[in-house]
Design a protein around this nucleic acid. Structure first.
Length: 596
RNA sequence: GCCCCCGUAGCUUAAUGGACAGAGCAUCUGACUUCGGAUCAGACGGUUGCGUGUUCGAAUCACGCCGGGGGCGCCA
């Protein structure tokens, strides 16, 4: 937001370096001044001093020298831009402390600029202009005929939020899902259905029913291993596209898909393109033949599978990519059989600049194998495939959720429990709300409370699910942020006249106001950082900090009861805060209720 | 055996190689007849697993340990 000022100062600093024979830095890193109360940006000269020392070969005290340079630059800047009070100066004052240069802005001018900008751009505030980049994000990837539990939830929430972040940062995003609609698990399910549940239909809770039948199938088969021959026979019928089997598969697959759609709708997630494993199986098998022909893959059939010896091809002495199996010895397909043609299809269909896979960290080696194989095959875009890895959601005691062991927390149950808890709290806090509003608010709060903790930690850190903390709405959590939004709204609702037009503050700003304005101005930077690092964490932290700053302001600074000129500016500030909170929550995929 | 990830306050966790390691929970103390107390202020709590290096400067980078998790030719 303050690029022109920053650039003007940078230019002056570079001039100073040239004039004083100091090596010109390639760039200066600016950060907001960490100790607030006043408003500005800061950079340090340690690198500069260190470079200078290296060049001269002399021993110097870098800290001392950095401070010296800082002081000289302050003097130089004052000479360049004139007295601090003149309007020409890009900053109000500057000082050098411990090797840092601090630039303080004119509070009135800049606070007006921030608030005006938010209220002009509204729901687009903080968003970057289009970069022209086209990126596909593949996430969720559920298996049909299985349960959907909170382990899967992290993937959906992370993937969706990463999409929102990339869009806000100016990329064109294609949201892709990749459905595991074939494989042994499906055949097991069909076998169990035919044998014990023929003709049955799922109830309302389709996903649960599908999952229960899968667990049952698994139980039958592990208790009676001799039944495996029946399953294998069914698999063979599927492989030959026996019409009866295919019809049943299509019908039951749709049951799962309907259930997934319900879940996605509840979570506020949609997809632009849904791929199915079944649609890339045939082209995958053709591709395997092609790879054998080209000498990239080795066919060890019938004694072994078809493999790609990646390390050998690359001439690596130490094992790194190892060996990837791309087709079973009996000719049936594996994940790898299908992931290679899928990657090609994606790039050909959409002319992507980048392809991101949101998949748990355990598949890290596998995905590196896929990407490397694509590179060996000669696809120049192979290097633009990226595995966005995240850790699992485990149960206390480091127990992995498993559909076959029944150690799962179903998404439906979590949402229901959380909403129920939220209803009780809303009833207690705000009994005057109409019943319908109460329900929808409770849902917003519950959804936020579930999503926030999954986004607010490093992707690569394990999450332990326990009911108590999942249903805890206190502290650094979404409801705190939503509450700040509600409070801002509450002030604006009571406003008697329309918001005044663009306005500079006429009073001397309170520290809480400066802190709040400062945070509002940082949204765009945080979005960009989250987009570059693919880490929603930066935005969850930002939204919380912003909410905290607003609650602090709320405590310190009366709005409606303030004198007219103070009130008019503060009302605009409240409106700007509400908008910024709302934009942040939107990107995170967390609802921003008007009341709660 | 080889490779990857994690280790920060009692618990959950943050910190583009840079200023005093910042929050929340829990515990304790306080907040005006006030725009919504799902709030705010304060206290307590840290040899950033251990060690050695690199650097003017290390929670952050390198190497070695310790502890936990994960992955390694026909599972997905």
């Amino acid at each position: 937001m303050f690029q022109p000022e920053q650039q003007a100062v940078e230019k002056a600093i570079f001039e100073f370096c040239v004039q004083n024979n100091i090596p010109v830095p390639s760039e200066l890193k600016w950060v907001p001044i960490p100790f607030s109360g006043e408003w500005g940006i800061s950079t340090s000269f340690f690198q500069l001093a260190a470079n200078e020392a290296k060049q001269s070969g002399k021993q110097v005290n870098v800290g001392q020298r950095a401070q010296e340079i800082g002081e000289q630059i302050v003097a130089y800047l004052l000479k360049q831009f004139g007295a601090s009070q003149t309007t020409k100066s890009p900053f109000r004052r500057a000082d050098a402390v411990k090797g840092y240069l601090n630039l303080y802005f004119s509070t009135a001018e800049y606070s007006q600029r921030v608030v005006d900008t938010v209220l002009e751009e509204n729901q687009h505030y903080g968003y970057c202009p289009p970069t022209g980049e086209r990126v596909m994000v593949e996430f969720s990837q559920p298996n049909t005929h299985k349960a959907f539990h909170v382990g899967h939830l992290r993937n959906v929430i992370l993937g969706n939020t990463v999409c929102n972040i990339l869009e806000a940062a100016g990329s064109q995003v294609i949201r892709a899902n990749y459905i595991g609609d074939i494989g042994l698990h499906v055949i097991k399910w069909l076998w169990n259905y035919q044998k014990f549940h023929a003709g049955e239909e799922p109830g309302d809770d389709r996903t649960r029913w599908m999952g229960d039948l899968y667990a049952e199938a698994d139980r039958h088969l592990s208790e009676n291993p001799e039944l495996d021959t029946e399953v294998r026979a069914l698999f063979a019928r599927w492989d030959q596209r026996d019409p009866e089997v295919v019809a049943l598969w299509q019908k039951t697959r749709q049951w799962s898909m309907d259930g997934f759609e319900q879940i996605y709708a509840k979570l506020g997630v949609h997809f632009d393109h849904v791929y199915y494993e079944s649609e890339v199986e045939d082209s995958g098998k053709e591709l395997v033949d092609d790879l054998i022909q080209r000498g990239i893959a080795v066919d060890e059939r019938p004694v072994g599978p078809v493999i790609v010896r990646i390390d050998d091809i690359l001439g690596l002495k130490k094992e790194k990519y190892r060996v990837m199996v791309i087709l079973r010895s009996d000719g049936t397909s594996l994940y790898a059989t299908k992931d290679i043609p899928l990657a090609i299809k994606k790039f050909e269909q959409y002319h992507l600049d980048r392809s991101i896979y949101v998949i748990d960290v355990r598949q890290s080696l596998y995905l590196q194998q896929i990407y490397k194989t694509l590179e060996i095959m000669g696809y120049p875009w192979a290097s633009q495939c990226y595995h966005l890895a995240y850790e699992l959601v485990n149960l206390p005691g480091n127990v992995t959720m498993s559909s076959r062991d029944g150690t799962v927390v179903l998404l439906e149950d979590l949402l229901r429990e959380a909403t129920q808890r939220a209803v009780e709290i809303v009833k207690e806090k705000n009994p005057s709300l109409p019943a319908e509003t109460m329900q929808s608010v409770a849902y917003d709060v519950a959804l936020g409370a579930i999503k926030y903790p999954m986004l607010a930690r490093e992707n690569i850190r394990l999450v332990t699910f326990d009911w108590e903390s999942a249903l805890d709405f206190n502290g650094q959590a979404a409801p705190y942020i939503q509450y700040a939004h509600v409070r801002a709204n509450s002030i604006l609702r009571r406003m008697e006249t329309p918001l005044s037009p663009a306005l500079a503050p006429l009073h001397s700003l309170d520290a809480a106001e400066i802190e709040l304005i400062d945070l509002i101005s940082r949204l765009s930077g945080e979005i960009q950082r989250a987009a570059v690092e693919l880490k929603p964490l930066h935005l969850t932290n930002y939204a919380y900090d912003l909410a905290r700053a607003f609650n602090d302001f709320y405590q310190q600074c009366p709005v409606l009861k303030a004198d007219a000129e103070v009130r008019d500016f503060r009302l605009r500030l409240v409106a700007a805060t509400k908008q910024t909170l709302s934009n942040s929550l939107n990107i995170l995929g967390i609802p921003a209720p008007e009341v709660m």
